[in-house]
Amino acid sequence: MTNSLLEMRDLEVAFTLGKQDYPALQQMTFQIGEKETVGIVGESGCGKSLTSLSIMGLLPGTAKITKGEIRLDGKSLVTSSAQQWSGVRGKDITMIFQDPMTALNPLMPVGKQIAEMALLHLGVSRKEARQLALDMMAKVGLSRVDRLYGDYPHQLSGGMMQRIMIAMALICQPKLLIADEPTTALDVTIQAQILNLLRDMNHSTGTAMLFISHDLGVIREVCDRVIVMYAGYMVEEAPVEELLDHPRHPYTAGLLQSLPGADKRGRILYTIPGRVPPLTGRRTGCPFAGRCPSATAICAAEVPQMKKAGEQHLVRCHLVAG
């Protein structure tokens, strides 16, 4: 394994509702190596977006880090001041979102928005920033960049806007790019283009990537390693082929089985009974115990720890022998 770039250790994030704290992320411990692409997958409310926001230092006002550590290149982000954090954000760690339309300023030409990033973080002149932006736009596969530079977001298609977002995110050569459902709002043929681009950029620039998605197929396409989350916990972590071909956690396995597809025609789909417990209704024990087909007494009583189930394969389940 390569050197670790980002390290999260036992992170806990809680929402304060009324007078009570409700933990939304617990025992989050993982690393992202240099140049590595790590995926986080899970259903809505599992905490995958919260994980990325806590790395960016952009947690909503009602949420706070209650425990644990996030380190970038060995430097703690949790203890750094708001000012230090904003120096890291946008330069060392950047982010792209699901909906590029709302992430771009509608009143500023797209090229200028890219150049602004360089101006803000690289200490270059306006002219140099413009040139850097044009180069970057060409690198992300946009054509006729001189003309495109002055266009406004509403003049571009969704795929082109996402390319602009990627150019903005990569212009300062960050160490880590967080991509939060970057292709969910796009059509499949455009999704394929963007996934190819992200993979190419990862290879050519060496920027590590944290890729968040609900789509296991997309995860397979881009990630080296993947973390499955459920109800605020990591429940499984392994290299992507290993995890998708030999899932060990009952939740991961159930998720894979319930995917529709041509191969399951004419059969009833597997379903995971029940639904994800809401933030305010999470009880003790394994977070998945209430829906798990093979839960036993210990599952309801005790939160299992992440344990080794193979080389580089970690599972949070009482039923998997360590």
Partner: peptide, 21 residues
Amino acid sequence: LFSAVPDVHKRKEHAVLQGDV
């Protein structure tokens, strides 16, 4: 269109369609 759909079972090399609609 069908080739562009990511597959959970294998990483595909797909013929990527260029351009927008």
